[in-house]
Design a protein around this nucleic acid. Structure first.
Length: 120
RNA sequence: CGCCGAUGGCAGAUGAUCGCUGGUGAACCCCCAAAACCUUUCGGGGUUCACUGGAGGAAAGUCCGAACACCAUACGGCAGCAUGCCGCGUAGAAUGCGCGGGCAACAUUCGCGAAAGCGGGCGUUGACGGAGAGUGUCACAGAAAAGACACCGCCGGUUCUUUGAGAAAAGCACGGGCAAGGGUGAAAAGGCGAGGUAAGAGCUCACCGCUCGCGGAGUAAUUCGCGAGGCACGAAAAACCCCAUGCGGUGCAAGACAAAACAGAGGAAGGGCAGCCGGCCCGAUUUAAUCCUCGGGUAUCGUCGCACCACGUCCCGCAAUGGCGGGAUGGGCACUCGUCUCGCGAUUGCGGGGCGGGUGAGAUGAAUGAUCAUCCACGACAGAAUUCGGCUUAUCGCCAUCGAAACUAU
RNA sequence: UGCCUCGUGGUGUAACGGUAGCACUAGAGACUCUGAAUCUCUCUGUCUAGGUUCGAAUCCUAGCGAGGCAG
């Protein structure tokens, strides 16, 4: 089941344009947890799974936001082979994510992803 | 040794696995590439592999500046803003920063002294020009808050009353002198002592303080001594203000370059569509469409600015400038002048190389991470966005050097 | 990234450097059989820290926070 390919997660796997974020916000479905908010939209014209991360200013200072965003990106990178293809995902960190550790964020991600039924 | 203070430095380490991003090199693929097919160099892009670089002392706040870029070359004045003891160094606008000095305040300690206080040592702090240019302010209280207009009070004088034999004493009123004492206040008009006086008063004198003048020391801030004035001169400039000095504005989202579509200008070719003239073929004309060129300004997964070299020295090459010398040619009797060419050494600029020394992040949705293991002092504050200095603020701790007094030991 | 403005009770706002006030809200009481309205009383504050000053919401410095503008 596990593909032998790498766990690489380059830039084209991420959402980069503001219009892409707005499309997820407009057309997607949203699941909200205590630490994270997950937005998902299925995309027809691409079989790639692309993910965007949002850490706004009320999460904390620049160092805290960088740490949270890197942890989220690492979680998605580790679980990228368990995701369905052809979807766009936006992960928004909420305020309590600043003090959560890696394990708590990973549990929250798995719970929200299974509820959104994007896992294989 | 501990505590405290000042200055300087460090900012968990090592390993494994999986990742992100910049650079260099190699392999492969794509674009370039042609109206069909093939295709090179240069150039551009992608994937993989190898090597290698990858947050800070504050990266922060944006409080001051500087570089750099653009705008009217930005000069003079007004306004506005900033700065304010002195000297040197540095950055080269004043500021700032470093070192040293002066003055003031505070704290501690030592000496002298009955005390008040004075002097010395060590240290900390100081937005430390001007209130003897002007305007305004100083609530309440208090007589009075800045040209002393005196409440209680102190001391004389005059009239009257009372007591008294009288001298005289007391009291009321009027008109004077004074500012010692009380009282108010944050602050009361030099302080304190003596003389003096009706009572008082720098009225006079000693000491201290203040101001001015002269002289000495010092580059200066300032300080010391002498003399004079007799006190006029309260606080606040972090109220306005005055004096001196400085400042053009905007900021890398500055700016430079490339550049599609639409619209614009010019031209070419063409004889097909449309309008119009003509009865029609057809012809003339106009506009649009096609193609080419042009300029301005844009979109942009654009490029640069922007990120390993600014620095010193030596060598080589190229270009420019003027100098000296040789040759050719022209004007010219000649001295000499003009042009061209060659050589020599010099200056400047550009490029390359060696040596010395220093340094190494660089994105554009924005990288520098995650997990595990071991060790220890058990990890704080916190994340680059054009660059560089200074300031301020946040911060778990650790290391080094130096140090006054007191305590302990010797 | 650069720039600008502003911080006063729970809310909206005043106040030459001289006792921090007003309105609404909240609480208590009065009136009423009860409630509303009305009347009286009370509570709650100068964003923080330093400085200038006899005295600071006001003046100065530093910080914290909020809002806005440009592209």
């Amino acid at each position: 089941m596990q593909p032998p390919s790498s766990f690489s997660f380059p830039k084209f796997r991420r959402l980069t344009r503001a219009s892409e974020y707005q499309r997820v916000k407009r057309e997607g479905s949203v699941r909200t947890g205590k630490l994270l908010t997950l937005g998902v939209v299925p995309v027809q014209d691409s079989d790639l799974c692309r993910v965007g991360f949002v850490t706004s200013r009320h999460v904390g200072g620049a160092a805290v936001r960088n740490r949270v965003r890197r942890r989220l990106r690492e979680i998605v990178r580790q679980h990228q082979h368990h995701l369905r293809e052809g979807i766009w995902i936006v992960l928004v960190a909420r305020k309590d994510a600043a003090t959560a550790d890696y394990r708590a964020l990973e549990d929250e991600w798995l719970r929200l992803a299974s509820r959104a039924s994007i896992l294989l």
